[in-house]
Structures are given as C-alpha cells and as structure tokens.
C-alpha cells in the first residue's frame, strides 16, 4: 500500500519523522482545490472577492455564500469547505458579541484574528478532531486606531496580516497580479475590477464549472461598515474584466501575427 505518510499521516496528533503533521497539510489541500478567493487592503478600505462555483443551473445566486458578516465592522470570506467555514463564522460572531458584552466596544481586528486563530489551531492538536478544511480571510476596521486590516487564517491556525492575499485554485496567478498593483493608491472601486479580472483569468471556462462573482467590502464609502457590494458595481466590474480579457486576447493575436 503506497502512501505518502507511511502511517504517520492518519492523525493530527502524529508527527512524521521529519517533523511534519500531514493531517494539517491534507486539510490545506481541501482549501487549495476550492474556488479562488482574493482579498486586497486598498487605500480606502478592504475588498474581498470570491469565485463562487455554481454546481447547478437551478441553484439560487444568493445560495452558498462564501462571504459573511460577523459584526458591523468585521466580515470574512472563505475558501475550502463551506460547511467547515460556517463553524469559524459562528465562532467569529460569538467572539465579536462577547467582546462587546465585556468591554463595550467593538472587537479590534487583531484580537478577533488571534482569537479565531486559537480556535482553529485547537482542531489541529486533538486526536478526536480534525483540522478545518477552510481558510478564512478577515476584513475588519479598528475604530480607535482608524485602520482597516486584512488577515488570512489558515487551517494550521496560522494567522497573518496582509496587504493582498489569494486562496484557492487560482491563488498563484492572483498573487502575482496583486503584486503588480500599487496598494497604497488603489481604491476599493478599482480593486473590484482588478479582482474580477484576476478571477476571470484563472477560471478556465472549458474545464471549470460556471461561477458567479461575490464581493464584500468595508470602506470609507460604507462608513467602515462591512457589507455585500451592491450588485450594479459587481456587474460593472464583471463587464470591465471580461472586456479587458477580450482586448488582451486580441493583443496576443496581434503579437503572433507580427511574429509570423
């Protein structure tokens, strides 16, 4: 029986001889196979964009959301298993509520991120549990520091703050696209279009299932409240991205002709 872990990969409580915990790595695989999720911390806010795969024609567009609000000033987008993701969302909501109950102010983004990280990490140290098959991007606003922040929480329990991040199938190309952007100047409205383009680029219409774009943001425009992006803006970004890609294709064709 061929196996990658040779028996060291059956429990999150087992280290392999070279110090790896395979079960956590396998859980990460579930995230890597999911639809692309992109998060960008722009000059005037944070945008989260999701490639939501539609498995059936008869599915309602509002179904299977991958973005969720957890507090007025905080929200998440998730890649991987939506069922696992919902548990993290539920925990995030509890943390936001209890912090508010105790201290009377909204939970600071860094505290929320760390508390969620502790929760997710707990599932990687017990034999009776399994790690989450979902990664979570957290967008939140810190009303006292006047900062908006983006965090990525992985199934390992690692949680880091980012300027731009991508998860799921198309993460590699999306990451390299994000690196080309000037994130100190980019506005949220511009980011919507850029993310739409990244997702369209990584999506292979011939091979992959059809998808719709799902966007949520938290920005000056929304008075630092987290919420879904209005549909007309999504449609606009979608149309722009498709047009850009078409003209890119034409350019490519032109180059080939010149070369020949």
């Amino acid at each position: 029986m061929a196996s990658t872990g040779a028996g060291y990969d059956l429990s999150p409580t087992t280290f392999s001889p070279d110090g790896r915990i395979f079960q956590v790595e396998y859980a990460t695989k579930a995230v890597e196979n999911s639809g692309t999720v992109v998060g960008i911390r722009c000059a005037d806010g944070v945008v989260l964009g999701v490639e939501k795969v539609m498995l059936s024609k008869m599915l309602l567009p509002s179904s299977n959301r991958r973005v969720a609000a957890v507090a007025p000033h905080a929200g998440v987008a998730q890649a991987g298993s939506t069922a696992d993701g919902r548990q993290v969302v539920a925990r995030a909501r509890d943390e936001c509520d209890s912090y508010d109950d105790t201290y009377g102010i909204e939970i600071p983004p860094s505290v929320l991120a760390q508390r969620l990280a502790e929760y997710v990490h707990y599932f990687t140290i017990h034999g009776a549990l399994r790690p989450f098959g979902a990664s979570t991007m957290i967008a939140a606003y810190d009303a006292r520091k006047k900062t908006h922040e983006l965090y990525v929480l992985e199934p390992t329990g690692v949680c880091l703050r980012y300027f731009g991040a991508a998860l799921g199938k198309g993460r590699q190309s999306a990451k390299s696209e994000i690196e080309k952007l000037d994130l100190t100047k980019l506005t949220c409205r511009e980011a919507l279009k850029e993310i739409a383009k990244m997702i369209h680029t990584t999506h292979d219409d011939a091979k992959d299932k059809p998808f719709i774009l799902e966007f949520a943001w938290l920005c000056e425009e929304t008075e630092w409240k987290y919420g879904l992006v209005p549909q007309d803006l999504i449609d606009e970004a979608d149309a722009w991205a498709k047009k850009e890609l078409e003209s890119d294709d034409e350019d490519d064709d032109g180059d080939e002709e010149m070369a020949s």
Partner: peptide, 16 residues
Amino acid sequence: LDKLKGLAQANANCDD
C-alpha cells in the same frame, strides 16, 4: 437593549 442589539446583529449577519 444589549440583548436586542445582539438580536439585530444576528439578523444583519444572516443577510437573508
């Protein structure tokens, strides 16, 4: 009122 605030936030979170 705190309880009601939680209820309102739960409604907002559902976004349905």
